[in-house]
Write a protein that binds this DNA or RNA. Structure first.
Lengths: 339, 339
DNA sequence: CTGAAAGCGCTTACAG
DNA sequence: CTGAAAGCGCTTACAG
């Protein structure tokens, strides 16, 4: 790669070079470089080593260190869709911060859901001696894991298996649904519709349960006519507008922010104002959308960052995995779509 | 991590174990496992090794391999914002696909733009003996790179330095601007407005240049009154609507999709239909937005995937770096917002 | 307080 | 065709 102009790196300086320059053995260098507790090193030798390190620009070879110590400092993170939403990015961000905090480095790989790539990626990670693997999906769902994962510790992030054999950390959809609904109820609304998704998923089931929880707590009878199904995108929300108007509700909880965005459109087209005529709450807190709708959308956040962080905590044994899935709260994000 | 139920991994099986099981030396195992061209291995020995490998479930230790071979198979990718848009994810996706194709693995790290984290991240990568580093930003801009990058080969992705000392690969904003404008011109529009961003950047400068190029080629005189500046989000587009209406244009090129989204709103509010009354074209092809606006937005794509892929190609010396920056085309994405 | 030596799991000339 | 041996850059008992 001469064309790129490689850095000023001659043949890397090793611990032996430092030892020679400092007039000590490599063992001594190793001890001072790593601040070994057990090792009593003379002030003089220590200083000479430190000087040599600085002067030569010595940088330890992490790979060699791993080899001799056994057990690497890698954690693998496999994601199924890194390129479509920021969700995977948030999981990576949370996982990385937590991993770093404990001296671990993330080896991330994107599979786009391809099982063949998935196996390649997992063997790559295994060959790199990862401490364990975080297997993540971009939306909460049940999965069947690649069998190759049995060869290492793994924790599931934003997904889970039917038999709950693997520790999993997922968003608390039910609490999220309850929270969203309560936001509307707290503003005085009594007839609140719920535009749920047509696709079956934990989000569909549990957000509905949360919606019912909130109604029950408020002493409002559940009315099945008030929940309408729609595709989980803008188009779905837009189409649902007519039904929402017909229902004559004053508030609606949307399955996600994209649906809310479509609903805004449909409502506006029918002369309804948000939040004066109808209050709206979304779900996801999707960056490019929620904060920039008119009015800015009150919603409930999907805790992807925390999902990633909690995942590594469990993988490293810092947090104990809950029996079943570990639930992470979906916090409310208040903006202006509720009057 | 016993609580997680570690995989069925006893003390990893090594090449020595395989050698013993196959009744050969480790050298022989190494040769057959790596399919060494030079080495003539008897059919018999080869088979015994392969059997042992399969039977014991041997998996080579990539770290040890790297150590003995020198020069690792890692490429570092530092990103400044992985959690807000899918852009970084697309760069990662492209870089990973290309890296894998050549037997390299990506070590990705997110810095959220923090210089301290940046230095930590780069030293981590250096210690892991990366072959080189891809330094990327989530929007195209001029930067000054961390000096630590001098210690290895690096290529800039979606950013560049003033002195062009480092190879860089960036989107061809000018061509993108021209393409967007031409889409409108080709549909017969003559008075096309341009809502540019208020923030100074290559995108602002070069998309404008492209817009002028297109007009010039079409023999239309540039009219400065037709370019209006707005903040590069929905709010900016919405606010610009009034001016657009006043201008009486039949077409507008928006600095990005988010601006277009806001403009849709503002235009609709004034009773204008898209694309019948005014045709709109965006920029970015932002996943969650562009395809789901009403009508779906015709736009020009930011080639993040290609940026990442081209970056590794240059880093690996497969493609020669262009003097100055390597420009990647921004292709048009046709949908329904142009009549 | 400090060093010689063995070892981590692999590769690679070099012999035979 | 196959193996013994040295070496990659580090760590870690163990001596002294």
């Amino acid at each position: 790669m001469s064309s790129t102009g490689r850095g000023t790196n001659g043949p890397a300086v090793t611990m032996r070079d430092v030892a020679k320059a400092a007039g000590v053995s490599v063992a001594t260098v190793s001890h001072v470089v790593n601040d070994k507790a057990g090792a009593r090193i003379g002030e003089d030798a220590r200083r000479r080593v430190q000087d040599a390190v600085a002067r030569l620009g010595y940088r330890p070879n992490a790979l060699a260190k791993t080899l001799s110590q056994g057990g690497s400092r890698f954690i693998g993170l496999v994601a199924d869709a890194i390129a479509t939403t920021p969700f995977a990015g948030q999981i990576i961000h949370g996982a990385q911060d937590e991993a770093w905090k404990h001296g671990y480095v993330l080896l991330v790989a994107n599979t786009e859901g391809d099982p063949v790539v998935e196996d390649d990626v997992i063997s790559m990670m295994l060959e790199h001696q990862v401490h364990g693997i975080l297997y993540s999906t971009w939306y909460h769902r049940e999965i069947v894991v690649p069998t190759m994962l049995q060869q290492t510790d793994t924790v599931l992030v934003d997904c889970f298996t039917a038999d709950a054999a693997l520790p999993a950390v997922v968003p608390d959809e039910r609490q999220g649904g309850r929270t969203a609904t309560e936001l509307l109820l707290a503003a005085g609304h009594r007839r609140v519709a719920f535009i749920n998704t047509t696709t079956s998923s934990p989000a569909r089931t549990d957000r509905l349960a949360g919606y019912r929880d909130a109604l029950a707590s408020a002493g409002i009878e559940f009315d099945g006519a008030l929940v309408v199904d729609a595709e989980p995108q803008q188009e779905g929300g837009y189409s649902a507008a007519e039904e929402i108007v017909r229902l004559g509700v004053t508030a609606v909880f949307c399955h996600n922010d994209r649906v809310a965005m479509g609903l805004y459109d449909g409502l506006r087209e029918r002369g309804l104002r948000i939040p004066e005529d109808v209050a709206v709450v979304g779900f996801d807190n999707q960056d490019v959308i929620a904060a920039h709708l008119r009015p800015p959308l009150t919603t409930v956040a999907l805790p992807h960052y925390e999902l990633g962080a909690a995942g590594v905590r469990i993988l490293l044994g810092i947090d104990a995995p809950t029996a079943g899935s570990t639930l992470i709260a979906c916090p409310p994000v208040l903006r202006a779509s509720i009057a």
